[in-house]
């Protein structure tokens, strides 16, 4: 049995934590074993962040924590106490879509839409990193986000449009 090496099962207590999510401070209590992803989806009803594998294999759960794109499935909510988190629900401002969101619609950069929030959050993180200069580099640095419908070319087109837009500014 795989659980044999635990003599007496631990029963942990909830921890109080405070997260700034999309600019809003949220205090809540969760047990240590709650991933940031499940915390968002099940405890805060922010279901825009998606669970595609729960193991860091697909990128659907990508959120931006303290300015960096990370996988919310591979981090615990308790580890992010005090952090500032941006999810897909907080990408647009004042009801206006972010340019990437617009570009995704214009380029038909999704079909089922399930990987989309992760793709958009990841692309925002990537643009902020400023390391991708060419389409090939964009593709490489976006490769942590799988799309099963096969919207890949449209996704990269959408990102290229916005990224070029930014460099022109």
């Amino acid at each position: 049995m795989i659980t044999e090496n635990i003599s007496t099962p631990v029963i942990s207590h909830k921890k109080k934590l405070s997260l700034t999510i999309n600019g809003e401070v949220k205090t809540l209590e969760v047990k240590p074993w709650v991933s940031l992803l499940d915390c968002l989806r099940e405890h805060l009803d922010l279901t825009g962040t998606k669970k595609g594998c729960d193991h860091g294999q697909c990128g659907a759960c990508t959120v931006i924590v303290d300015g960096k794109r990370i996988l919310s499935c591979l981090t615990l909510a308790v580890m992010k106490d005090g952090a500032s988190i941006t999810t897909i629900e907080g990408i647009g401002k004042d009801g206006e879509l972010h340019p990437l969101q617009k570009a995704f619609i214009d380029h038909d950069a999704f079909q089922c839409g399930y990987c989309t929030p992760g793709q958009i959050c990841s692309a925002i993180g990537m643009i902020a990193e400023g390391k991708a200069k060419t389409r090939t580099e964009v593709k490489e640095l976006m490769s942590g986000n799988l799309c099963r419908c096969g919207a890949n070319t449209n996704i990269i087109d959408a990102i290229m449009e916005v990224q070029e837009g930014l460099t022109n500014e």
Binding site: R41, K51, E89, G92, I105, D106, D108, F110
Partner: peptide, 21 residues
């Protein structure tokens, strides 16, 4: 014509089967 549900899909507003809390 762009997908009519595009806004919901790019903003995270679209709720899938496991997201009715």
């Amino acid at each position: 014509i762009s997908r009519l549900e595009g806004y919901e899909k790019v903003t995270g507003a679209a709720r899938y089967a496991g997201e009715f809390n």
